[in-house]
Design a protein around this nucleic acid. Sequence first.
DNA 1: ATGGTAGTTCGACAATACTGGAAATATCAT
DNA 2: ATGATATTTCCAGTATTGTCGAACTACCAT
Lengths: 120, 120
Amino acid sequence: MTDRFDADRTILALGALAHENRLALFRLLVQAGADGMAAGAIADALDIPNSSLSFHLAHLTRAGLIRQTRQSRSLIYSADYAAMNGLVGYLTENCCGGAACLPDMTCEPVHETSISRQRA
Amino acid sequence: MTDRFDADRTILALGALAHENRLALFRLLVQAGADGMAAGAIADALDIPNSSLSFHLAHLTRAGLIRQTRQSRSLIYSADYAAMNGLVGYLTENCCGGAACLPDMTCEPVHETSISRQRA
DNA sequence: ATGGTAGTTCGACAATACTGGAAATATCAT
DNA sequence: ATGATATTTCCAGTATTGTCGAACTACCAT
């Protein structure tokens, strides 16, 4: 389930997150939960030109950090929680002299409807 | 203690780790523990030309992920565990609909002498 | 079919990052 | 001082990344 992260994939994921717009974008999607957000809504929220956003979305997708689904005219993007868990897992692996210092963290997405929507 | 990570610092740290040589380098130092390693020893272990290694060491240092101390002719580098904890903290912040899913992880360095040195 | 909306791809340019040899600096021993 | 060792800085070339307007594609409604 927690798909295994090797060095290459980790580098890909880190590189994807190592950018102002993409980090903000990823965090936005993490907070958006399982329902995700349409590209247009993201562009509005982050105030990024359409084509630039598309570039960053593709980048994060390539890195396996977000997923895309279509819903009529809109493309909905959502964070891949397993990927985030895998990334953190790889980073904290072997961090305390071999002792597993991190108790197998697993973050899971939340549905918008289950958090009494407080966004505008 | 766990110095606060904002977006800018996180991007700096992610960018620093998002490279084959630097990720390997950082992991090497994490495993080396509190005693760290001399630049030369790192160059040997990773088989990177001297000047390139220096470039990457400077990059990781700039990002606050490793620290430098001198010991006679050698410059000893060691992982900054607080930085790693801060980075992971920032990434997992707000990951489960606001619930703190990660029990305040804090990895701490280990001394070489305390792990019955098994390296060559 | 026509037209409008949602997003992506293309292209060209600017900026930044990586690499490694050669020269420079710092430290130590004699 | 001289020489050896440890490491960094400089430099120039190459490669990768980011930006955004304009043209394109996909989908939906009528």
